[in-house]
Amino acid sequence: MTKVVTLGEIMLRLSTSPGELLTSADTLQMHYGGGEANVAIALSGYGHDTYFVSKVPDNALGRGVQRHLLANGVSTAYLLQGGERLGTYYLEAGIGKRSPRVTYDRKHSSFANLSASELIFEEILDGASLFHVSGITLALSQDLRELTLEALKTAKRKGIKTSFDFNYRATLWSQEEAATAILPILPYVDICSCGELDAVFLLGIKEADHTLSKEERLVYYYRKINEIFPNLEVMVSTFRNNISASSNELQGNLYANGTLYQSKVHDIQPIVDRVGGGDAFAAGILNGLLEKMDYEKTVTFAAAASALKHTVHGDCSQFTKEEVQRFIESGSGRISR
């Protein structure tokens, strides 16, 4: 099996039921989730040997995280224990025209206080084919920015492919802070998940002509990014049309070698849980690249995997390759016999 390593924070998620506000809810649903953990879980379901690098407290919640990862086939060999708390976030479920809303409670978490001296990436990455991380990790502390940069440098030195998802969250840091942290790491990235807003507001690229189609604008931005960072082999993103909180249209994009490849548009309704849809797409892209699918099949698989994730509760996608492929071949709504 292909060894994949991801680095990031996993948190406790507490969610309201649709139709309830967080301010008045008296019961909350509990899940564990985090971008890089979600990617590791999805890739494990596709048959890859995945390792999640993080730190959780030595208490019932930390043990719950470990059980969650192991139950989904992810190795916890590099899951450190220590610190005082597991980061938490609250999800107020959207409905109709009211969008979902996230409230973070993650400061001073065990992972946010992780120091570079606690991890030896020379050993962790030994034998790996891919290392994945996101901008959320960079946002949490200066130590984690330095740790991530060193991990990416180590991966490149060992000939390991690297993947970075911008995953910008305005509630965690400013655009200026994000740009300062992200720019130094991009020379060490092979596969990048980013879109138009990232190009303009984080990378400072001049806005495209608004008379162009959205596809033409995306190609413009990806070409400009490639001029600055020619090391980026693949760039990916999604087009999402938010019709309502329970109805979206989703299309996957993959840019490589000067060409844009796109999936079909998925009409997703009703949405059971949108959280983690981007991670499912990222994992689908990485699976396709690891398995050396052609680019069109890769983005088709990734978009289908993301669409399927919207149909289940929780942060992570637990579908197999075969289930995603059946969905692609049969379309939605048909009984699989």
Rank of each mutant, 00 (worst) to 15 (best):
E146A: 13
A151M: 02
R145Y: 10
L149M: 12
L149F: 05
L147S: 12
E146P: 04
D165M: 07
L172N: 00
E150Q: 14
T148I: 03
Y168V: 05
E146D: 15
E150Y: 06
R145T: 10
S174E: 08
R169G: 11
E176Y: 05
R157C: 09
E176N: 10
T154F: 07
K161I: 07
L147K: 10
A170G: 12
T171K: 15
A151W: 01
R169Y: 10
T162P: 10
R145C: 14
T162W: 03
G159C: 05
K153W: 05
E146V: 06
Y168P: 07
K158G: 03
R157Q: 15
K161E: 12
L149N: 11
W173M: 15
T171A: 15
D165T: 05
F164R: 07
S163N: 09
K161N: 12
N167H: 05
R145I: 05
N167K: 02
S174H: 09
N167G: 06
F164K: 08
A151D: 00
L152E: 04
Q175E: 14
A170N: 14
R157D: 14
Q142V: 07
Y168L: 07
K158P: 01
R145A: 13
W173F: 11
K158Y: 01
F164S: 08
A155E: 11
N167M: 03
L144F: 01
I160T: 04
A155K: 09
K161D: 13
I160Y: 02
D143T: 09
R157I: 07
G159Y: 02
L172K: 00
I160P: 04
F166D: 00
T171V: 10
K158I: 03
L172A: 01
A170H: 14
S163H: 08
L172P: 00
L152Y: 05
Q142I: 04
D165C: 09
K161A: 13
R169H: 11
L147V: 09
A151P: 00
R157A: 15
R145G: 09
A170Y: 11
A151Q: 01
K156V: 10
D143Y: 04
L149S: 12
L172I: 01
K153L: 06
T171G: 07
Q175L: 09
E150V: 04
D165Q: 08
F166T: 06
A151T: 02
R145L: 07
E150M: 08
E150S: 14
K153P: 03
F166E: 01
E150H: 12
L152W: 04
E176V: 09
R157H: 14
G159S: 05
F164W: 05
R169S: 12
E150W: 05
D143K: 12
N167F: 02
L152V: 09
F166P: 00
T162G: 03
K161M: 10
W173A: 12
D165N: 09
D165A: 07
T162K: 02
G159M: 05
T162E: 02
A151R: 00
